[in-house]
Design a binder for these strands. Structure first.
Lengths: 237, 237
DNA sequence: CGTCAGCTTGATTACTTTCAATTGTTGTGG
DNA sequence: CCACAACAATTGAAAGTAATCAAGCTGACG
């Protein structure tokens, strides 16, 4: 897919997406956001923003999948979250005037809009509902981060890999066959997600395949026994 | 310390604390919050609210130390945060209308005020600055949670125990001698904080004592070589 | 002064990481 | 389109770290 293959609307009110934080505000406010809006194409693997850099706006994904990761001291990466179309990125650093807490990397070719800081703040002041939405979003992210913390602290690698697969399914869904995860990760990314090493991730995938809970097709992962996978993952909600 | 030994003001405007989220709003708004405000005494070890229960207000600590923890599946506890005078608790569940994400337990005898949900929401709608403060607070909590996640995922137990000690010092400070942490934790609580077992926490404390970085006096922990401790913990800020 | 909870120590076990080597895949330039 | 370089996946073996299990020990408190 080349740049230009996808047409990004100039105005947020014409975006067509429904579920995002921005989607729920009034059209007139969307048009305020859209003034000075930029849009960019990011090739697979390209970094959208780096941990530690300063924010000058807010990103909203029009199309594509993005991972948000943080580096430990020794340079090992931890994936803390994913984002896909509709999702906004970088709002936290923008609001708290701090450097980015994580690095956002395109997992596939992406189209991303950029809203200026000033415009967003302007709408935020006008619209109490938007700030409530932001609070809700932060709450959700915080809840997820704390859950991941408990998982890493208390679950075994096998449980975490099983959970990661279920999370991927819930975030990105399945392909038409109803089994294949609709996202491609490297083994190393899966390891970064489950907080383990590449080798252990591979061995654990082999073990889950052995037990017929999943199957593998190159990098693609197929869910063969979802309920048992959920069971192993220890997910109850 | 018995109930009644401490006098809690009836109004937030007379509270005297300066640093909390609530402290920074106007007196007139504080008085709105104070209508229907309750205040309670919690004995050491008593639970202020339980994970999973529903929120009907916001807690603000007038005096005392509180731990916020979450349970894993197998019942093992993870301390995710501490709170002390000035700090507010339970606002997240209140705002997002979800059950409490964690359990708050008094680590020593505490005096805690309770602000009604309605009053808080009322002020929140009036005062854009308060909602911004809440956003900042959530951002900070999220940043801390993600940092803790990286720590648990990537640091050794020794590093995490060292870091826990430094965090305790930064949160609760030292006694008059300039060395003793001004907070008492059981070994098991320290383990729950550093995401390890009681036995390993004890062995690690012994090791740090051996290396003359800390010393122990019953349950109390004395910092003997702070810079080296920070060094081991891998804290750079 | 007995009891109970929390602390401490030792020994063993299990899980993961690390290191090393090999094979497989992909993208690129000629 | 092929060859090659670079990167990703896989497998095996060894080493380490921390959890678990099992006993004493200690100190606070009625």
């Amino acid at each position: 897919m080349k740049r230009g293959a996808v047409k990004i609307p100039d105005k947020c009110s014409e975006c067509g997406h429904k579920e995002g934080v921005i989607c729920k505000i009034a059209d007139i406010e969307k048009d305020i956001l859209s003034e000075k809006k930029g849009s960019n194409y990011y090739k697979k693997g390209q970094v959208i923003f780096y941990e530690g850099n300063h924010s000058n706006g807010l990103y909203c994904i029009y199309k594509g999948k993005v991972k948000i990761s943080k580096l430990g001291e020794d340079g090992k990466e931890q994936i803390v979250r994913f984002a896909k179309e509709n999702d906004i990125l970088g709002y936290r650093s923008m609001l708290s005037k701090e450097p980015y807490h994580g690095t956002a990397t395109a997992m596939e070719d992406c189209y991303v809009c950029m809203v200026s800081k000033d415009r967003f703040n302007q709408v935020l002041e006008q619209d109490a509902k938007l700030s409530m939405n932001v609070i809700q979003l932060l709450s959700k992210d915080l809840r997820n981060a704390e859950q991941l913390l408990i998982d890493v602290a208390q679950k075994s690698v096998k449980e975490r890999i099983a959970e990661s697969i279920i999370k991927l399914e819930r975030t990105f869904g399945l392909k038409e066959d109803g089994k294949t995860l609709d996202v491609i990760l490297t083994r190393s990314e899966l390891a970064d997600m489950a907080a383990t090493t590449t080798e252990t991730a591979i061995r654990t995938l082999a073990q889950l395949t052995e037990e017929a809970l999943i199957s593998l097709n190159g990098k693609a992962i197929l869910i063969e026994n979802k309920s048992q996978l959920i069971n192993i993952a220890g997910i109850y909600d």
